[in-house]
Design a protein around this nucleic acid. Structure first.
Length: 714
RNA sequence: GGAUUCGUAGCUCAGUUGGUUAGAGCGUUGCAUUGACAUUGCAAAGGUCAGAGGUUCGAAUCCUCUCGGAUCCACCA
């Protein structure tokens, strides 16, 4: 054995050997009890970020259970990441001086498909490099035909049950990316903008958006506001930049008398609150901004201008006409931005598909309350409940081509929708007209990934694993993904007439890890330029060290900063481990003992009192305790404790104490036999954490017939 | 505005149902070793567990408040 453990080349070689031997397959333990994890599918198109390296937790669990003899399944996959990917692709097109509008739908889709297929091996190679023992034979993609079929079916069932409906509502719309978004995809930022105090006849009201005034269908005051009591219900004649107009004054409790002058202009087509008010007061909706971000003809001479231009022009003209009372230049408020391009989100009225969430959320809340699904760490349950108890209907339409096109056809004659599971319908299901056209929109990516556990198991013929044992992911997608999987999972199983609530859920334990931040404690993001490629770090320290550093010293669910000293400590630990093996090898040679000689008959049982020296008994006992502790901690998802116990025992008990003792032991043979045995047990316990170095040592030192990965847990 | 979470050694963090002298890694200091270990071993220094009050036989751990940091949710013209 070399003096220093050098992982370069070793890790790839070992991984290849494991994969070729089929160790990642559930066939390793065909008679064991099922234990399954579905990998949260990374974006097929993007390289992994450091957060993905946290999937080491899943690998630890899978390796542990494989060694326990369970029939383990760890199913890999990739997500098409609809809008995310299309956004990246459009940037690429932009770089080539093209745009998505230069291509028709089919061509564009094909181009993105090829682009993604070209990039996908990068991500999968990274997962391999980290040592993840995924069953690659079963890998799935969210756009696989069989997965898409299941998504169609769910959509149709929701539609038939009245849980999916078409509605013209205000949606979050990005006029730059040309698509709507769900509430979760809007980010908010504090901005300082002018607050304009505008004269509406005898009244003055405050607004940040004077350009939307052409869409005003009322002005509102608080019903208890004495100042304006006399105006309520009246229609005022007002002067505007487009000439004389009439506007109704209504009373609504939504108005805060303290804000501005206590008067609000109501623009139902361009403000979520105003939209709500308009429903209560039966006000018409007048859209003045189009989906391209320009004013339409309702804005008179301002039509054709972009929102910002129009605002300036309107304000200028108002000032000339004396319609502006004053301007507060220091008004600070929060505005919604597109999470991707950071431009302001426009509330715009648009016909979209919505999922009625309340009926789906209720059972999802129940199963966690009843502990059919357990969430680790438990404190995360609150976030889960908070989301589901206040849930709003989900807009699942996206105006992009990269994704699963919504299987709904609109009839040109009766205007009704026909939803089909698979094949294109020939005629309208309502009036039998053949004049039908498919919706151009695609599903929100999360609508399909929300069905992932069932869809992957069903399409790989592994439904006996449903519900899966563990869903492990970052706490940041608890509501985006985990909650939706629970809701859709239960719904789909009920449709399949699964009665047992425990069989409806998609998984039993939800295990949530924290974020990996940069060494300075800042969230890694491309825009900040502080993203660290996990593979670079793996290259430098070895996959084992990276894996160990990520679970050592961080409690489950807590964020951590990437720490180079910790990585270095972990790397040294691999070297320590290696040199302990070297010591054993050298000692065995000097004493002319071979591991084969030691064999089973010579293996000393820890309880065989009297035959062993005091030190030998002690180390045996302590190893037993370690085995118990590590097993207990793994069962409780306390990976940091397990790692710490192993590190401490191996280094400071086995190496520092026992090996030092062996050096001067009087009965060297006996001491060595015990050392060989104890060290082997340690390798097994450590294997889920540091699979490569342990496997390499096991193969070299023990010359074992079987590989460590498929050996028995002590 | 609502909520969550954190504040423990110089730094990064553990502290597993409240229980004897609060732990680790890195760093610092001293000694030893270079015949398993691009070292490693032995030992030492270093903490009023953010602050105040309370519950308890006993609090880093539970409760209240204050200060400071982070995050999430709702989005107000």
């Amino acid at each position: 054995m070399d003096k220093v453990y050098n992982q370069k080349g070793v890790e790839e070689r070992i991984y290849k050997n494991w994969e070729e031997n089929g160790y990642f397959s559930s066939k390793v333990n065909p008679n064991g009890k099922p234990y399954s994890i579905i990998l949260p599918p990374p974006n097929a198109n993007a390289p992994l970020h450091f957060g993905h390296a946290m999937y080491v937790i899943e690998d630890i669990l899978i390796r542990y259970h494989r060694m326990l003899g369970d029939k383990t399944l760890w199913l890999p996959g990739a997500d098409h990441a609809g809008f995310e990917t299309q956004f990246v692709f459009e940037k690429k097109l932009q770089g080539e001086g093209k745009s998505r509008f230069d291509y028709d739908r089919e061509v564009l889709y094909k181009m993105v498909w090829d682009f993604v297929q070209g990039n996908r091996p990068v991500m999968e190679g990274q997962l391999r490099r980290l040592g993840f023992s995924l069953d690659w034979q079963k890998k799935k993609f969210t756009l696989d035909e069989d997965v898409v079929k299941i998504v169609y079916k769910t959509f149709k069932q929701l539609f038939d049950d009245g849980l999916v409906y078409r509605a013209k509502r205000l949606v979050n719309y990005c006029t730059f990316d040309g698509t709507s978004f769900s509430d979760l995809e809007v980010i908010y930022e504090e901005r300082k903008d002018p607050l304009y105090y505008i004269k509406y006849g005898p009244l003055v009201l405050a607004t940040t958006r004077p350009e939307t005034k052409f869409g005003d269908t009322a002005v509102a005051v608080n019903p208890n506001d004495k100042r304006y009591k006399e105006y309520i219900g009246r229609t005022l004649d007002i002067e505007t930049v487009l000439g004389k107009a009439k506007i109704k004054v209504i009373a609504d409790k939504m108005v805060d008398p303290e804000f501005g002058t206590g008067i609000v202009k109501i623009t139902p087509a361009h403000d979520f609150d105003d939209y709500e008010v308009s429903l209560r007061h039966d006000l018409p909706m007048v859209q003045v901004i189009n989906y391209d971000g320009k004013m339409n003809d309702k804005a008179g001479k301002f039509s054709g201008m972009y929102i910002k231009q129009a605002r300036r022009a309107v304000v200028e003209e108002m000032q000339e006409k004396g319609l502006i009372d004053h301007i507060d230049e220091n008004y600070v408020h929060r505005i919604g931005l597109c999470y991707k391009c950071k431009n302001p989100i426009e509330p715009l009225p648009l016909e979209q598909w919505f999922v009625k969430m309340e009926p789906l959320a209720k059972p999802a809340i129940d199963v966690v309350r009843k502990s059919y699904i357990k969430i680790y760490p438990k404190s995360m349950e609150k976030h889960y409940f908070q989301f589901l108890e206040n849930i709003k209907d989900w807009n699942i339409s996206r105006q992009i081509v990269w994704g699963i096109r919504i299987p709904a056809w609109k009839c040109g004659d009766c205007q009704e929708w026909t939803v089909a599971e698979g094949k294109t319908p020939e005629k309208c299901s309502n009036c039998s007209s053949k004049n039908i056209k498919q919706d151009d929109d695609t599903f929100d990516t999360w609508f399909s990934s929300g069905q992932w556990p069932y869809a992957t198991l069903k399409s790989t013929d592994n439904l006996d694993y449903y519900p899966t044992t563990v869903m492990e992911t970052g706490y940041d997608i608890l509501r985006w993904w985990v909650a939706r999987m629970v809701m859709l999972g239960i719904y789909m199983q009920k449709k399949l007439e699964v009665e047992d609530e425990r069989k409806q859920i998609p998984f039993q334990d939800v295990v949530l890890h924290g974020l990996v931040k940069d060494p300075l404690g800042k969230k890694m993001s491309k825009s900040k330029g502080n993203v660290i490629d996990p593979l670079e770090v793996v290259e430098q320290y070895g996959a084992d060290a990276v894996r160990f550093a990520l679970v050592y010293g961080t409690a489950l669910g807590n964020d951590q900063s990437l720490s180079y000293p910790k990585l270095e400590a972990a790397r040294k630990f691999t070297n320590k481990l290696w040199n302990m093996a070297r010591f054993i090898e050298i000692e065995l040679n000097e004493n002319a003992i071979s591991v084969e000689d030691i064999g089973r008959e010579l293996k000393v049982k820890p309880d065989s009192k009297g035959r062993l020296g005091e030190e030998e008994q002690k180390i045996n006992l302590k190893t037993k305790e370690l085995e118990k502790a590590v097993t207990k901690h793994l069962d409780r998802y306390q990976f940091n404790f397990a790692a710490e116990n192993l590190y401490h025992f191996i280094w400071h008990t086995l190496a520092d104490k026992y090996i030092e003792y062996v050096k001067q032991s009087k009965d060297k043979t006996q001491s060595l036999v015990v050392l060989v045995d104890v060290y082997e047990r340690c390798l097994k316990l450590l294997h889920p954490f540091m699979p490569f170095v342990t496997e390499e040592i096991y193969d070299v030192l023990y010359k074992a017939k079987e590989d460590l990965i498929v050996s028995d847990w002590p």
